[in-house]
Design a protein around this nucleic acid. Structure first.
Length: 311
RNA sequence: GGCGCCAUAGCCAAGUGGUAAGGCAAAGGUCUGCAACACCUCUAUCACCAGUUCAAAUCUGGUUGGCGCCU
């Protein structure tokens, strides 16, 4: 019999955290954060991290476990999440994956295989330089010679993905297009429910704008300053987070503070939009529309509970 | 009241006789080891009316609205 897994996601600022606590308490769940920024310590305000008090005793995994200097990526997330799930099952509870990083959710939900290679930084660097020197088109042409299908699927300007496809071929001798096709056909090994909490676009954008103002009031700038002081640099994965990269640009004199705040709001709205696009594409998704439930917390949790028969 | 300047998409903005650049915002989308990343697609007949001309956002007259100066 498949093991149960609940996913609670949705665009940023929709109210996932709050709903997740109620749901966890109702069904005896423990929470695994599927968030690429909340894993990091010292990044509380900007990542809208849940506080220990807000957890209300519900166990949380993958929050505050890495230093900002450390790298974090899907593969690492997948490993850590699987470990956490093992623990939760052992506790006799149901794991609830809560967070807005769709790619991460997909990785554990379908148990995507990432194990084929370990990566080779030198080769990657070489490709990056090649793209810089000769332009993205020629790099893309190189991909075409080894994996035409991948070249068709990836736009030449998307240098990052082109490099990954080349790297994959370099390391395994196989085509990433074939690998992707295989992985895409996977069935989830879990008995899962995939909830996407959503709200009307205008309402969501308003919440985002307000939340950014609130973060600034709570001292986001100080948080970023402290990270800079301790030696964090802009190229770190952690410093690519919304709110962090813009404030770094301000602290380095590139833009005004006003501009930074404007950009954080705008980029966060763009992010929310991309998240929604992602969830629309996912199969077997259960949409929970807040406006149809009159924004009633209890109704929202009940709507989810009604879908969970194994709880 | 008089004189001058201006009026191009939600915003900024090019174009001064040959059939509407670009940027931002909005919208839609891609994504399988950096994903809060990276990338793609896409939006107008030029304030209004009348004229000149084969042809007008571009020239002329008027109307409306805005800005500045003068009395």
């Amino acid at each position: 019999m498949k093991q149960p897994l609940i996913v609670l996601t949705g665009p940023t600022a929709v109210g996932k955290t709050k709903a997740s606590i109620r749901l966890a308490k109702e069904i005896g769940g423990e929470i695994i954060s599927a968030d690429s920024m909340q894993v990091y310590k010292h990044m509380d305000i900007g990542s809208a991290k849940i506080s220990p008090e807000e957890m209300e005793g519900v166990p949380h995994y993958l929050i505050d476990v890495l230093e900002p200097e450390e790298e974090f990526h899907v593969v690492r997330f997948q490993q850590m999440a699987k470990e956490a799930m093992k623990q939760i099952y052992a506790n006799g509870h149901i794991p609830i994956l809560v967070g807005g990083t769709g790619f991460y959710i997909q990785a554990v939900l379908y148990d995507i295989d990432f194990t084929e290679n370990k990566g080779e930084p030198e080769y990657r660097k070489e490709l990056e330089e090649y793209a810089r020197a000769y332009g993205p088109r020629l790099l893309h042409d190189r991909l075409r010679t080894v994996d035409a299908k991948a070249a068709d699927e990836i736009h030449a300007n998307n240098v990052k993905r082109v490099i990954r496809a080349l790297e994959y071929h370099h390391l395994t001798g196989k085509c990433i297009s074939a690998h992707n096709e295989r992985e895409r056909a996977r069935k989830s090994p879990y008995e899962f429910r995939y909830f996407v909490l959503n709200d009307s676009r205008s309402r969501l954008y308003e919440r985002i704008n307000n939340r950014v103002d609130q973060m600034m009031e709570e001292g986001l700038l100080q948080e970023v300053k402290a990270l800079k002081m301790r030696g964090c640099t802009r190229n770190m994965v952690s410093m690519q987070g919304l709110g962090y990269k813009e404030l770094f640009a301000y602290l380095e004199g590139e833009i005004t503070l006003e501009m930074a705040v404007y950009q954080i709001k705008r980029d966060t709205r763009h992010f929310a939009k991309r998240q929604i696009t992602w969830f629309k594409r996912e199969k077997q998704v259960l949409w929970i529309e807040k406006n149809q439930l009159n924004y009633d917390e209890e109704a929202i949790v009940n709507a989810m509970k009604a879908q969970i028969s194994f709880a």
